[in-house]
Design a protein around this nucleic acid. Structure first.
Lengths: 342, 342
DNA sequence: CCCTTTGTCCAAAGCGCTTTGGATTGGTAT
DNA sequence: ATACCAATCCAAAGCGCTTTGGACAAAGGG
């Protein structure tokens, strides 16, 4: 069933039917109702391609997901997308996921722009100087950045206070009396990793505690990395009495390694993890309950969707950005250091 | 830059340029090369909407993701999508995710069909008699089902042998001497959950062991459910000496509860989990290493993408279906039951 | 009673691409 | 020479929708 046929059925012109369906004012309410009823009855729904061709607007936003790299389609991404979806579905905007294979991100973004298949894009995991952001702003293509980058050009973004989070966590451990604090951070180069490290370093520097490079790891977030690196940490002399974990996945591995060594969490070795709030992995349910810096990545997705809608409604990107504070939630996995009973 | 302009630049007709770009034979190789170069130089890339409108083909497949329900956008979904992406990106097919809010699945599928925005769809988590499958086959819309359903109409699907997996796991536990085996399965109504329960029941019936309804739980897959239900199990008299967990998330909670009770995994209480193979959560890395029934959901995604491509190439759905066997991998979390030292 | 306004509706012109049905050319067979 | 064929290229007709620029009638103002 196409518009033309529907119009014929109703004895109206395509124009009127189209307008009725799209809520334009210049059509009689009675007519509109008649049209709506008929559309429902015949199961008519506009051909999206034709519609977009005619309007120039698409009703979809684009996301490029690298599928082979380490920041792959993991639990963070899916929580984030889930949050996005929550808001975007209200406006019937769906999203187009372009998987990236050859790792040529920039050209993937370029193609997506010129193919006119999306109205806007979301870019995640920025580096300190992110070329994608540069390309998109230059092309005047609307987008929201999840994270921060140092590119000058005005653009919309939302980020959490990663630096503050790790500063807080580190300071808290220092307050508890820890002198040797290790960190398993995200991959080098990403802004969030750098910011976290900054927070960590600032806290240590503030107390004039020297920073041991062996205590800093940059890698992907996984149980395995957490386990392996913690084993390494614990074999050092002196070993760290507290570990910052960049994600809950990492934290699982860290906890495992601590326990494997016969230590108790929050006693011989403390741990504070960053928690993106996964519905299936709850920090407060762990044993012992895990102290975390907490910020829902899902909520961030929802908010970013909100920003995107504002952007598409014509709001200027300059005014759209937010930094979310991160709360430190004290639970049992962090406590004053205890000398291991030898 | 649009086709017309490019054609003018080249002094050719739109027809020729279009054909050159799309690899049609009736254009001189020299001309084709000239066109390709120019396209590259001017950064021309066809407007996807116009192209689709003209061709009737889209270059995207659709997925409806319920975002509020329990089978939400979780780690399973993202691993699966990741697998899909791996294969689809080769053919430059991207996917359109339609978030579902009001839970009116059927009409979401209907809209997606009639809006002509996708060439095919993937449907996941079927129930025993799945209405979506019925609607799609009736509409003659190409799709691949991830899982199985009892709908007669021929359709393409791929499923793992859930029944066999749980039959194997249960039998193994019985071989070890367990008499009281509990199961935390997926939500009631989904085919995979039902199949798993069948496998479990068959194994028990085969040995004439009566089935205690208190030992069977249907719920979503999460750490929390695993923990809570295992606590409940362990408070029963007699309590189960082995627990089947439907997912690795669940298994985490189960392990936690077992340990919290002061029991050792594989001793007082054994556990076998179904492992969908998450890159960030490795069964063999756990302590003790976890016995699992193992089948990569990511690989399934890739294979389903493959099937989809075949379907779009005109292959008939009748011939496209596969059941994947599931391997039981014995590790340390399962062993003969040990009477708790009271 | 004529003129303007307002409320409805319509015909037709795009949107940018693919594809059908030729037209043109140069070469080969008759 | 004539006819025929293959190799190239092109003009124009869609694809199904939105939107511009009126047309037409009823209503209101003088």
């Amino acid at each position: 069933m196409k518009l033309k046929e529907l119009a014929e059925q109703l004895g109206l012109s395509q124009t009127t039917v189209s307008r009725a369906l799209n809520g334009y004012p210049e059509v009689n309410e009675a007519t509109r109702e008649r049209v709506n009823k008929a559309a429902l009855k015949f199961g008519y729904s506009a051909n999206a391609n034709a519609r977009r061709l005619a309007m120039g607007r698409v009703g979809a936003i684009g996301i490029v997901v690298p599928i082979h790299s380490s920041e792959r389609f993991g639990p963070h991404t899916s929580e984030f997308l889930s949050g996005l979806a929550e808001r975007l579905s209200r406006d019937e905007i769906d999203f187009l996921i372009t998987p990236l294979i050859n790792n040529d991100e920039i050209s993937a973004y370029r193609r997506l722009i010129s193919s006119k298949r999306v109205d806007a894009m979301i870019v995640s995991h920025p580096s300190l100087v992110d070329e994608r952001v540069a390309v998109l702003t230059e092309a005047q293509f609307p987008f929201v950045l999840h994270g921060r980058t140092n590119i000058d050009a005005p653009h919309a973004w939302l980020d959490i206070d990663n630096k503050g989070a790790f500063y807080q966590a580190t300071s808290h451990l220092l307050d508890l009396g820890h002198k040797h604090i290790a960190m398993i951070d995200g991959l080098k180069g990403f802004t969030f990793s750098e910011h976290r490290e900054e927070g960590y370093r600032d806290a240590l520097n503030e107390r004039s505690i020297s920073i041991d490079p062996h205590f800093i790891v940059h890698d992907c977030f996984s149980d395995e990395i957490g386990f392996r690196e913690t084993q390494r940490f614990l074999s050092l002399r002196p070993h760290p009495t507290a570990i910052l974990a960049g994600s809950m996945m990492t934290a699982l591995g860290v906890s495992r390694a601590i326990r494997a060594k016969g230590y108790q969490l929050g006693k011989e070795v403390s741990i504070i993890a960053h928690d993106d709030v996964f519905p299936y992995l709850n920090a407060s349910n762990m044993v012992p309950a895990m102290t975390t810096t907490r910020s829902s990545i899902r909520a961030a997705g929802t908010r970013i969707a909100e920003m995107l809608v504002r952007l598409l409604d014509g709001e200027t990107p300059e005014t759209i950005h937010e930094v979310w504070p991160v709360e430190l939630i004290l639970r049992q996995s962090s406590g004053p250091p205890v000398i291991p009973a030898k």
